[in-house]
Design a protein around this nucleic acid. Structure first.
Length: 207
DNA sequence: CAGCAGATTGACT
DNA sequence: GTCAATCTGCTGC
């Protein structure tokens, strides 16, 4: 069936290019009971390490949380935001350089029942996997998966249906206003028209 | 050591 | 539109 992505796939020095290349790939998890859930990646964001103000590793911050990003490519960087949401990232390039790609949107293709249960939903609407915290919860990804290799049997990525360049859209990342001018970098990629792409929260009506 | 803000989401006014 | 939930890590006293 679908071939598991080799380690070499993640070793691209250009994390932005890799964020684009991840569109269309398969992302899967297996529960302790052996149920496989997953689907097709339709939205990603690149975080360019120490020189990117939006990255947790900006300026060389190396903490218990960011340590995994400094490790080898092809592993999972999972962390908690707001104390309750798990966000799943793919670590890229090489040891010592904290590049990562956040997965923000997934089109469900398998194990939908298990995902609905984990999300406490009755039907597969966009609420199931459109959004980084939503897809992590749907797949059962938690902090326990931090550092896991992405060619393992708990979490893995595979080849998928190629996304034609004309179907790829690009824009600034979401929720990184704190990053100053880096917030405007066009590091977000998504599949045009996919209902499984997240939407930025509507900004408060300033004056 | 207190305070605060954050790669978000969902419930409620 | 507004706000709470609640862990990690930075900033400042």
């Amino acid at each position: 069936m679908l071939q598991v992505l080799p380690r070499a796939f993640y070793e691209d020095p250009d994390v932005v290019q890799l964020a684009k290349a991840l569109l269309g790939k398969g992302l899967w998890t297996q529960s302790p009971e052996g149920i496989v859930s997953g689907g097709r990646i339709v939205e990603t964001e690149a975080y360019a390490g120490e020189t990117d103000r939006a990255s947790h590793a900006f300026g060389g911050r190396r903490t218990r949380r960011t340590e995994v990003m400094y490790g080898p490519a092809g592993t999972a960087y999972v962390y908690l935001v707001y104390g309750l949401h798990h966000l799943f990232n793919v670590v890229t390039y090489r040891e010592g350089v904290p590049h990562a790609v956040l997965i923000r949107g997934l089109e469900p293709l398998a194990g939908t029942e298990a995902m609905l249960t984990r999300r406490n939903l009755g039907a597969p609407t966009a609420q199931l996997t459109a959004g980084p915290a939503r897809l992590s919860q749907a797949l059962g990804i938690t902090i326990a998966d931090n550092g896991r290799p992405l060619d393992g049997d708990r979490v893995w990525l595979t080849e998928g249906q190629a996304v034609p360049p004309a179907c790829i859209e690009m824009g600034p990342r979401i929720g990184v206003a704190y990053a100053g001018e880096d917030a405007f970098r066009p590091y977000r990629f998504w599949v045009k028209g996919s209902p499984w792409v997240s939407r930025a929260k509507q900004a408060a009506p300033g004056l």
